[in-house]
């Protein structure tokens, strides 16, 4: 039992956790506020670039395989149920519950854009899962809520331990002559009951022992001390500032109404209105990928940031 996260040797993994989380959160927010196909497409390319840069291409493929059926379903449902839209592609027979089948280009395009948005969001969570260390992520919030974070980290630690315990108890039962996997299903349940009970009992017993040990060490008696501190380097400041600029330009695009796109009743011309804001957004958001490339190419850059 281990995390899905594993450390890889590239620029993304050398960033501070808060920087990566902020970057991913910005992309997440932007993907939710934009409906314009060009902006969604751009966000998709940025996300793809980040996943490839961080070296998680193989892991991402699994996520894509899972999300493609959902995307197809979204497009299908949308094009069947929505009958507004002026460009009719196909007009079919009358079906029960749905009514007359009428597929329009607009509905198809809207379904496609929403499917793309879903893929972006799923990819972002894939990026998060594989590039953010859970313990460090939890530690970001320990300032606000130390008890809850402590409980989370404690139970993460207990996961592999519980599985070990479970195996150990099964072995003990086998040694005592209990046939775990034999007999009717009712016998199996009867045999499983003591195993689960013992697992519960022993882990609760251990939790009390641990609490006593914590008490003896003075948990909660004063301000918490910090064992390990994550330092922020120059690269973190660069990426954070550029992400803030990217977020600001994205919000500007959104408030100016350029991020949204009207699919119904007729597809409008999908053109970009503001090239400056768009290019600022693109450049700031692909900066981590660019720096990773430079990081590998020039050791001098690596030593400076």
């Amino acid at each position: 039992m281990k995390y899905l996260y594993s450390e890889k040797n590239n620029f993304i993994y050398k960033l501070n956790t808060s920087t990566v989380v902020f970057f991913i959160f910005t992309l997440f927010l932007l993907s939710l506020i934009f409906t314009h196909p060009i902006y969604l497409g751009t966000l998709f390319i940025i996300t793809t670039l980040m996943i490839i840069t961080s070296g998680n291409w193989l892991e991402w493929k699994g996520y894509l395989r899972l999300s493609i059926p959902i995307v197809i379903m979204i497009i299908l449902v949308n094009s069947i149920f929505v009958k507004t839209g002026s460009n009719v592609i196909y007009q079919g027979p009358t079906l029960p519950f749905i009514g007359r089948l009428r597929i329009t280009l607009e509905a198809l395009a809207y379904g496609g854009a929403m499917g793309l948005r879903l893929i972006i969001i799923i990819s972002l969570f894939c990026l998060y899962t594989y590039t953010v260390q859970p313990d460090k992520f939890m530690k970001l919030f320990s300032r606000f809520s130390s008890k809850i974070i402590f409980i989370v980290i404690l139970s993460i630690r207990l996961f592999p331990l519980l599985i070990e315990d479970y195996k150990r108890i099964i072995e003990v039962q086998k040694t005592r002559g209990v046939k775990i996997n034999k007999g009717k299903w009712i016998d199996k349940i009867k045999n499983a009951l003591p195993i689960i009970s013992v697992l519960l009992l022993s882990s609760l017993e251990r939790s009390f022992e641990q609490a006593e040990s914590m008490y003896a060490r003075g948990y909660g008696s004063g301000k918490r001390s910090i064992y390990q501190k994550d330092i922020k380097r120059r690269r973190d400041y660069i990426i954070t500032i550029s992400t803030i600029i990217g977020l600001a330009s994205g919000l500007c695009i959104f408030t100016a109404g350029q991020g949204s796109y009207s699919y119904y009743p007729k597809l409008s011309n999908p053109s970009l209105l503001d090239y400056r804001l768009y290019s600022i957004l693109v450049i700031t958001m692909i900066l981590p990928a660019i720096l990773n490339w430079g990081w590998k190419k020039w050791p001098i850059l690596k030593s400076k940031i």
Partner: peptide, 27 residues
């Protein structure tokens, strides 16, 4: 909800117990 719990005074045994139950339920 978390904040409400955070404000409440609780001893170490309760904290450890909650962590253990969350882990069992999760596993």
């Amino acid at each position: 909800m978390f904040r409400k719990y955070e404000k409440k005074k609780s001893d170490t045994k309760e904290i450890a117990l909650i962590g253990t139950m969350a882990a069992i339920a999760g596993v």
